[in-house]
């Protein structure tokens, strides 16, 4: 059992959990993920590790309540326990001194970009971060990102904060400027990562993306998370989750993400029924 020590709402439907998981905290590196299961009936949910603290033995998870299971996860309180938590999984981000690194985070993807930006900064890179969200209400980790970046650029779709633009616009401006960009790291919705990769491709700037496809075990056993990278199938759980953005087949990935949409609705309705039926197992 893994205890939730801190719960914080970062934005509407975006939650932060600090969870007691000393073995994972001891080993976690930027770029890695965990898989959790809420209870006996729960599915295995992969979440990127947003932060870790080796001293306190805790890891930070940030998630958006998008599907039935994440909504259920969001109903847990401080002091509640998560039944299963396994990790760290996947390969760590390759961090070294590259020169100037642009870290792009979109929506909930800003959370996993944060430890990477921090790592890049600590490794002596100039870090320029671009973070974007639909509007300012759901923009997370602004302060944290500012603290580890030499320059922070904010974009919102509605212009409520920073530039009224998509993250690719300031990225293109940076690529067009005199600056030599050594590396771009982008984490966010698949469509955003696809367009970031398309933006950097003509410039030949190496672009790393972190993929979060549907998976079950997270250890290379099911193959559900297979993605086509350079026309070769890779398992995101063990070969990734980070890949060369210029080689990823984003279209197939987006299609695969939609596989269980009909089930999602059915599961939500089932859980809604359970809530109304007076199952109070998650409230205290």
């Amino acid at each position: 059992m893994y205890k939730i020590l801190v719960k914080q709402q970062l934005a509407p439907s975006v939650q932060l959990f600090e969870v007691e998981a000393p073995l994972i905290a001891k080993k976690a590196q930027p770029g890695q993920f965990i898989i959790l299961r809420i209870d006996e009936e729960g599915e295995r949910i992969p979440l990127t590790i947003a932060d870790f603290n080796r001293e306190t033995g805790t890891i930070t998870l940030i998630f958006q309540e998008v599907g039935a299971s994440t909504v259920e996860l969001g109903r847990l309180h401080e002091g509640d326990c998560i039944l299963d938590l396994v990790g760290p999984l996947g390969k760590a981000t390759h961090i070294q001194k590259f020169g100037t690194v642009v870290c792009v985070g979109g929506g909930i993807g800003i959370a996993p970009v944060y430890p990477i930006a921090r790592g890049m900064k600590e490794a002596g890179n100039e870090v320029i971060s671009i973070i974007g969200a639909r509007s300012k209400d759901i923009l997370i980790y602004e302060k944290e990102m500012a603290a580890v970046s030499d320059e922070l650029i904010i974009t919102t779709d509605d212009g409520s904060k920073g530039l009224k633009a998509l993250v690719t616009q300031p990225l293109k401006e940076l690529l067009d400027s005199d600056k030599t960009i050594s590396l771009v790291v982008a984490i966010g919705p698949v469509i955003m990562m696809k367009f970031v990769a398309e933006t950097t491709r003509p410039y030949g700037v190496p672009t790393v993306v972190s993929l979060n496809p549907i998976m079950v075990d997270g250890t290379g056993m099911c193959g559900g998370c297979r993605v086509s990278v350079g026309n070769e199938n890779k398992f995101a759980c063990v070969d990734g989750p980070e890949f060369d953005g210029h080689k990823v087949d984003f279209n197939v990935l987006m299609s695969r993400q939609r596989m269980y949409k009909p089930h999602e609705k059915q599961h939500s309705e089932h859980l809604a029924g359970k809530q109304e039926g007076g199952c109070k197992c998650h409230s205290h």
């Binding site: 009936e41 599915e43 999602e264 599961h267 089932h270």
Partner: peptide, 15 residues
């Protein structure tokens, strides 16, 4: 393992 044959009582879907 995930008991998808009991979906949606069990949360793991199967197609």
């Amino acid at each position: 393992l995930m008991k998808a044959y009991r979906f949606p009582q069990s949360a793991t879907p199967i197609h």
